[in-house]
């Protein structure tokens, strides 16, 4: 079985994330890392490989992004993925969801031309764009069934069942491989790379693709080809400091009730 995990390199959420003057996300001034939510995707791919140990299963970590994005693939390899693919091309800069999903889909097709891809695993959302739409777009482009936002994943043969918290119900969803899967942070904590894993990762193969390797024209991606444009990105003015009181023998509740009444909440 051939599993591809899509991992994104993102600016650290706990750092001071910014926009550049051209309204693109500042990916230089802030430390980047493998999106924490994509670690869960890598974890589930690795668990599947471990659970189905009687099969030959290979896990490929795939990223689309600038040179630094290779770090995201490296981390996935340290966790235990078998190989990496890094799609990098200056023309990709500034791509929107449609551009990114096109490149991912073409890269998955290329990986699949050597050995059929049975399962593509995604995180539930990237921690920077947080759209949660790339998995559905890739599924649409590849014509694959889409099973998203899974908190529990079970598989047997070519059948996959997942559980998820839908908008209005808890659902069990079934599908037959090949599929696109996305997993939530409820699916189980991701492992830390072991020392052995870190050493082993150095020897694992990472292939680099450019757009021409994928048969994608430069004019199909990037800021120019984007289907939407950011007009303005403004830092929100810090909230004006509110009033803070210290509770003493019930004074806190009284003051808070006064405040809520002044705002007409009660």
């Amino acid at each position: 079985m051939n599993i591809v995990v899509c991992v994104k390199h993102v600016p650290d959420a706990t750092a001071d994330r910014k926009f550049e003057s051209d309204n693109t996300v500042d990916r230089e001034g802030v430390d980047g890392l493998l999106s924490e939510l994509d670690e869960y995707a890598v974890e589930q791919a690795l668990q599947l490989r471990e659970k189905r140990s009687d099969e030959e299963i290979s896990v490929t970590a795939l990223t689309v992004g600038p040179a630094k994005a290779a770090d995201a693939v490296r981390k996935a390899l340290q966790m235990g993925a078998d190989k990496g693919v890094h799609v990098s091309d200056d023309a990709i800069a500034g791509s929107d969801y449609l551009g990114t999903s096109l490149v991912l889909a073409k890269a998955i097709e290329k990986i699949g031309s050597e050995q059929k891809v049975d399962l593509v695993v995604f995180g539930m959302a990237s921690t920077d764009a947080s759209g949660g739409v790339v998995p559905a777009m890739v599924a649409e482009r590849l014509g694959l069934p889409q099973v998203t936002l899974a908190s529990v994943i079970e598989s047997q043969g070519d059948q996959v069942r997942i559980k998820r918290d839908g908008d209005t119900a808890t659902e069990v969803i079934g599908a037959t491989l090949p599929i696109v899967l996305s997993v939530t942070d409820q699916s189980g904590e991701a492992r830390y790379p072991s020392f052995k894993g870190i050493m082993a990762a150095k020897k694992k193969p990472v292939e680099s693709y450019s757009l021409s390797d994928l048969g994608v024209e430069a004019s199909e991606v990037g800021a120019e080809a984007a289907y939407s444009a950011v007009e303005e990105a403004t830092a929100r003015p810090p909230r004006t400091a509110g009033e803070i009181v210290t509770d003493e023998d019930g004074s806190g509740a009284t003051a808070l009730a006064e405040f809520l009444a002044s705002k007409k909440f009660i």
Binding site: G242, E243, I244, V245, T246, D247, G252, A253, L256
Partner: peptide, 12 residues
């Protein structure tokens, strides 16, 4: 916050 209370929630 617009309004904050430093205190034990079980009391407040």
């Amino acid at each position: 916050v617009d309004f904050g209370v430093v205190g034990d929630l079980h009391a407040v």
